[in-house]
Design a binder for these strands. Structure first.
Length: 1189
RNA sequence: GCCCGGGUGGUGGAACUGGUAGACACGCAGGACUUAAAAUCCUGUGGCUGUAAAGCUGUACGGGUUCGAUUCCCGUCCCGGGUACCA
């Protein structure tokens, strides 16, 4: 093969990995560029061609920037906590860490053996994300890989949680501050001058019996009040100010599934999955006070270069609206109703008030005669989920409370109603209803015959409300004659003067619930002191004790009493390192269980370990001489089997493993396996120290010191087991851990920071590294995270910024969203054999031993569907089926064809035939033609399938564009295409498909064109016998022009992130060079660099063949020279009244006047002037000439 | 309903600040090479009229601004995405 891409790509994959070509270190002498992809969740399904689209685009920019001389940070990792692994664990009992590791690292170990859990549901070996990614030639620095489920990583997620927990939001400084500054304020002045973002009604939520304040206390306290509170009271109070806080929230609880469901997982009061009933349950949940940042999150959008639609979605989500808060006093009552309105100017049109059914005042104000009706209404509303209420928007419902409040300006009595259309979660949960100016109020008023006073000048409100802001007010006292803007200003001033309200900005965004009743997520670094107090107050674990590692549990399900899975870790209590082992039922160590269950393997392992002890390596011996009991005072074992591993050294009491890594550890795959092992052992509480042979030989002393220090630092298992409060029976002060875990978005909210310093054990990242890499310069990913990840990471960034840990408060400077690549599904149409059989009985019977599956064409499928749908004409279908039977019978001569008449047949009720469309695996379909043999072999029941073919004897499949998914059998994996065409071709083709932002169906039709381009490029420097031939001759002007045109356009297009047009440009360049028969070094070499971001393997290969000894990755981007593009003449299109008529080559140096003269002098001009005189001649130099006649 | 995108050949798409519409590729048609096929190469390819030269027409539709509009403005239709008793 001339262009042997398989050999080339394999060679460079290895070379890049061996040489660590893409490793990057901080270098203050170079400008930096941070190119980041949204890291994937490693699902078992693996990658399809849609996933790499963004990765390829980002990789191209990363490589380009590196050519441009930037120090480029381009990392990759995995968002590895999440639901699918947990669900799989529930079904199979397999630990999610195993599933996760298999999904990332692949289902086969280094010896080619299938790992536990290495097969997917269909029994195929899981290829693993890493291998799939490696195939595509990305320039990732894998040394910086992060996995959110790795304890080394989530240690810092927990640390950030603790930071947020210890924060409050100071409105005066407009930022988050340490809670200590708030405490100081309390100590000095009580809450007199505290301007904090907190729960509005925090004082109402405090348990009254624990506080000395009276019933009508409105939340003010003095320094003395504060200092006289005990620890518990102070903590309870502070909780309402913390940025991460614990509060009772209403959640969707599904007992059958044993979990809380998000709102979108609930449909019609039942779970979307399984249809189990869902009830509203008040649960103590962690929340994040993201609402404190509403304003800054909106403002920040103006400082970042993001797609406008994402910004818009975030703006809408935050939902800023300006208006006013106004109080209405209730007749004969002390309490007031507070409303928020964006139209305070319409206050003279208020004819009633509406409260949300959940509003706390409702039961207080309802008069006795209406009380029963009100209670009934509330009960009805409670039964409905929020979704239901939204579903029947059209059914206006409401109930009068019997109470009235007083209009603050007119002193009129206004009836107070309750209505479902008012939501408790927005504003104050109460509305001043202005039916003239709001459609919902209008509908409500109309339904319940409430007055609709007109407050607009010359507007008819008999049919609908007047909602425009242009309408001029009337019947509005001092606002008459004004429109929205002026009136609002005036009314807010009046309201403030009366002391009944003030102008206010309201936000739609709620605080984010932060806890989940799941197993596979970050544990909270939080414990409760059980027994000491009825009110469980959370306490933070000490930073030194992080990470709080996930405990082992017997099942990944909630407990029967509804507690989260972590509650199954029976003795899970907070104590210093190491985490106490969780023991299975009956107090048996999990690994002892394993040993009993796997006797045979266990025996072999022990044997093997014995053998290994007999043949120690040199380095093992060095360590052994020093760590054995006599030397250190700790019992250390050598080559000790533990579960399915043999540990080099282990001190069981201190749960410390020491591993000596041979050269094989440098091998990426081995390292990944080792890491997985460390992680796994981590679940049992073990810590692993790793040293290389070189380290042991060269820095023996240091290595031993590390081991010694670690052994001394770690508390003894014996001691901690004895010291466990639970083991001494019940009692005061048992510190049990928080059983909830963090949501999926916790780990992904800050991962971009960890890449900067991925292995730092002392900080989430060193400040100087964060300062160097700074913001992400290009962030690629899907738009579906607009209100999730992209909002939360902005939020966490702002908190870290406020606390001075990082120097920027927006994480992603520029973002581009890649579109989705859709699949093209193929369909076959199966005729329902029952009806086939039945119908055929009318005229004929086919009698094979077993009736085969019959697949009809799309046309017949549609004909049957339509016929049945239109009038159910049976005659025509019978004849259709008759026709169908013919070819089948011709093909299957052993079938008997007879005519029978069945007397029992109910001719009136012959069922209509039906067809079902079934997804056919696209690997069995080529150009819509079904590979019948492959299809028959795919399933047992299809073995004798019969097909209705077209004239050419082919079965043509139908098709549809759908989302790519395994269940639709339309997944195209990159692996197959890399094997067939090479990674370079696939990379270029995915870019060539169109703008990355656009969604488009996947279609391999054009891939040949791109592949041919690379082959033509290869042939530029190779002769017919595939010998490498380049000449050192000086390039011609034409060749230089071709090259520099490409340099200019490629550079420009990459700078404006126009990936697809670059491919065209490169094609044009190669096409021209082919025509020029150019194989000159001075042209080919720079062209290789231009191509290298897109097709790194082939570029690198030719680069090497050209005699370069260093990687093309570091080659300098070719400089563009304007001089080569200069032309002496330009072919002016001459148009008359805008219509191009002919072309006229003229010197580019000519002035406008000279061009005009030349055009007029040309004989063709005369022809198109038709004797008339030109009115005007427009000349755009080097562009166009337009003659106006 | 509201907000944001988008409508260009048979197909994916290009045309960057108004300046030759359809680059580049796929597909299709014809041809060369070949026993044949594949591969490769050449030619043509928006529509209509025409043997041709050429002409007309053409960027969802209708109008406007302009010497000139796919591009800017107004209105209409269609498609996609987001979002909703948010007061």
């Amino acid at each position: 093969m001339e262009y042997d891409f398989r050999q080339i790509e394999q060679k460079w994959r290895k070379r890049w990995a061996d040489n660590k070509t893409y490793k990057v270190t901080e270098d203050l002498n170079k400008p930096k560029f941070y190119a980041l992809d949204m890291f994937p969740y490693p699902s078992g399904a693996g990658l399809h061609v849609g996933h790499p689209l963004g990765y390829i685009a980002c990789d191209i920019i990363a490589r380009y920037k590196r050519h441009e001389g930037y120090n480029v940070l381009h990392p990759m990792g995995y968002d590895s906590f999440g639901l699918p692994a947990e669900q799989y664990a529930i079904q199979t009992g397999q630990h999610p860490s195993v599933t996760t590791s298999v999904n990332i690292d692949g289902g086969i170990d280094e010896n080619g053996n299938i790992k536990p859990g290495g097969l997917d549901k269909d029994g195929n070996v899981v290829p693993g994300y890493r291998k799939q990614l490696d195939l595509l030639g990305f320039s990732y620095d894998w040394d910086r890989e992060v996995r959110t489920s790795n304890p080394d990583y989530y240690k810092w997620t927990q640390w950030i949680f603790a930071l947020i927990y210890n924060s409050w939001f100071n409105r005066d400084t407009n930022k988050a501050e340490n809670i200590s500054t708030l405490i100081k304020k309390f100590e000095e002045n009580g809450n007199q001058n505290v301007n904090a973002v907190c729960d509005d009604d925090w004082f109402a939520q405090l348990p009254k019996e624990k506080f000395f304040f009276g019933k009508d206390w409105q939340g003010d306290f003095t320094a003395t009040d504060w200092t006289s509170m005990n620890e518990e009271q102070q903590q309870l109070l502070l909780m309402h100010f913390r940025m991460a806080y614990l509060a009772d929230s209403w959640v969707n609880w599904c007992p059958a599934l044993g979990t809380v469901l998000a709102n979108d997982e609930v449909k019609d009061g039942k779970s979307e999955r399984g249809g189990h009933p869902v009830e509203q349950k008040l649960m103590r949940q962690w929340s994040m006070r993201i609402s404190a940042y509403s304003e800054r999150l909106i403002q920040g959008l103006d400082t970042i270069d993001w797609p406008e639609n994402i910004k818009e979605v975030q703006r809408n989500w935050i939902g800023r609206s300006e208006g006013a808060k106004v109080e209405f006093t209730i007749e004969n009552k002390k309490s007031k109703i507070e409303v928020f309105t964006t139209r305070p100017d319409t206050i003279f049109g208020v004819s009633f008030m509406t409260l949300a059914p959940e509003h706390e005042l409702v039961l207080q104000i309802a008069t006795p005669e209406y009380r029963a009706a009100v209670e009934q209404y509330i009960a009805g509303a409670k039964l409905k989920t929020e979704r239901d209420r939204q579903a029947d928007v059209k059914n206006v419902s409401g109930q009068f409370t019997g109470a009235y409040c007083i209009h603050p300006f007119t002193d009129e009595k206004i009836p107070v109603w309750i209505g479902e259309y008012v939501l408790i979660g927005y504003g104050t949960g109460a509305v001043m209803a202005v039916p003239a100016g709001d459609q919902r109020d209008w509908d409500f008023a109309t339904k319940f015959n409430l007055p609709i006073p007109n407050i607009f000048e010359g507007v008819d409100i008999s049919e609908k409300a007047e909602t425009s802001k242009e309408a001029v007010l009337a019947n509005s006292d001092f606002l008459n004659g004004l429109a929205y803007k002026a009136a609002t200003k005036k009314i807010i001033a009046a309201v403030e003067e009366k002391g009944i309200g003030q102008g206010k900005v309201n936000y739609r965004m709620r605080d984010a619930v932060f806890s989940r009743q799941r197993y596979w997520g970050e544990p909270f670094p939080v414990y409760y002191t059980v027994g000491a107090s009825k009110n469980e107050i959370p306490y933070l674990c000490d930073d030194n004790d992080l990470p709080i590692v996930l405990p082992e549990v017997d099942k990944y399900l909630p407990t029967e009493s509804g507690e989260p899975p972590l509650a199954r870790a029976k003795d899970w209590v907070y104590s210093p390192h190491p985490q106490p082992l969780s023991r299975g039922e009956g107090g048996v160590d999990p690994w002892n269980q394993w040993q009993t269950a796997n006797k045979e393997i266990w025996g072999k392992l022990k044997e093997r370990a014995r053998d290994m002890r007999k043949n120690p390596t040199e380095t093992e011996d060095i360590i052994w001489q020093h760590v054995r009991n006599s030397q250190l005072g700790f019992k250390v074992r050598r080559q000790h089997p533990f579960k399915e591993f043999i540990l080099d050294f282990v001190c069981l009491d201190k749960m410390l493993v020491i591993e000596i890594d041979g050269a094989h550890h440098m091998n990426d795959e081995q390292r990944v396996l080792d890491d997985a092992r460390d992680l796994y052992l981590g679940f049992f509480g073990f810590k692993t120290l790793r040293f290389s042979n070189e380290q042991v030989l060269l820095d023996t002393h240091e290595v031993l010191t590390i081991i010694k220090t670690e052994l001394e630092k770690r508390p003894s298992l014996k001691e901690s087991a004895e010291g466990t409060p639970l083991s001494s029976g019940e009692g005061q002060g048992v510190r049990r851990m928080e059983y909830n875990t963090m949501p999926g978005w916790a780990g992904s909210s800050w991962y971009f920071l960890r890449y900067m310093d991925a292995h730092n054990d002392n900080a989430f990242a060193a400040r100087e590294k964060v300062d160097y890499w700074n913001q992400v310069d290009l962030y690629m990913g899907g738009a579906e995270h607009a209100t999730g990840h992209l909002l939360y990471s902005r939020f966490w960034t702002k908190i870290l910024f406020d606390h001075g840990y990082i120097g920027f408060d927006e994480p992603f400077k520029k973002m581009i969203n890649q579109g989705m690549i859709l699949g093209r599904s193929s369909f076959v149409y199966r005729l329902s054999t029952y009806c086939f059989q039945f119908n055929l009985k009318v005229g004929l019977v086919i009698l094979p031993s077993k009736l085969p599956e019959i697949f009809v064409t799309k046309e017949i499928h549609e004909a049957i569907e339509n016929e049945v749908l239109s009038n159910g004409t049976r005659m025509s279908i019978s004849s259709l089926l008759h026709e169908l039977a013919k070819p089948i019978l011709e093909e299957n001569t052993n079938w008997i064809f007879t005519t029978v008449f069945d007397e029992k047949m109910d001719y009136e009720n012959i069922p209509n035939p039906t067809t079902t469309n079934i997804h056919a695996d696209i690997s069995m379909v080529d150009n819509d033609v079904l590979d019948e043999e492959a299809f028959k072999a795919s399933r047992e029941e299809y073995a004798n399938a019969v097909f209705i073919r077209n004239d050419e004897g082919k079965y043509i499949c139908g098709w549809e564009i759908e989302k790519m998914s395994k269940s639709k059998y339309n997944v195209q994996t990159p692996d197959e295409l890399v094997e067939k065409f090479g990674a370079d071709t696939l990379r270029m083709y995915e870019m060539f498909l169109g703008p990355v932002e656009q969604s488009k169906p996947w279609d391999t039709k054009g891939i040949n064109g791109v592949h041919n381009f690379l082959r033509r490029f290869w042939r530029l420097s190779h002769d017919a016998d595939n010998n490498f031939v380049v000449s050192d001759a000086e390039p011609t002007k034409a060749e230089l022009k071709t090259l520099h045109t490409a340099i200019k356009k490629v550079t420009e297009d990459l700078n404006r992130y126009s990936w697809n047009t670059v491919v065209s440009t490169l094609m044009i360049c190669v096409n021209e060079l082919t025509e020029q028969k150019c194989s000159k070094r001075q042209i080919i070499e720079p062209l290789c660099i231009l191509l290298s971001p897109y097709a790194p393997h082939i570029a690198e290969e030719l680069w090497e063949k050209l005699g370069n000894t260093t990687s093309i990755t570091d080659a300098k981007w070719p400089a563009f020279n304007e001089a080569f593009l200069e032309v002496s003449s330009f072919d002016y299109p001459v148009s008359f009244n805008g219509k191009t008529r002919f072309f006229l080559p003229l010197g580019v140096e000519l002035s406008q006047e000279e061009v005009t003269k030349a055009v007029l002098a040309d004989e063709q001009t005369a022809k198109f002037l038709e004797g008339k005189a030109p009115k005007k001649i427009i000349v755009v130099p080097k562009r166009i000439v337009n003659v106006v006649v």
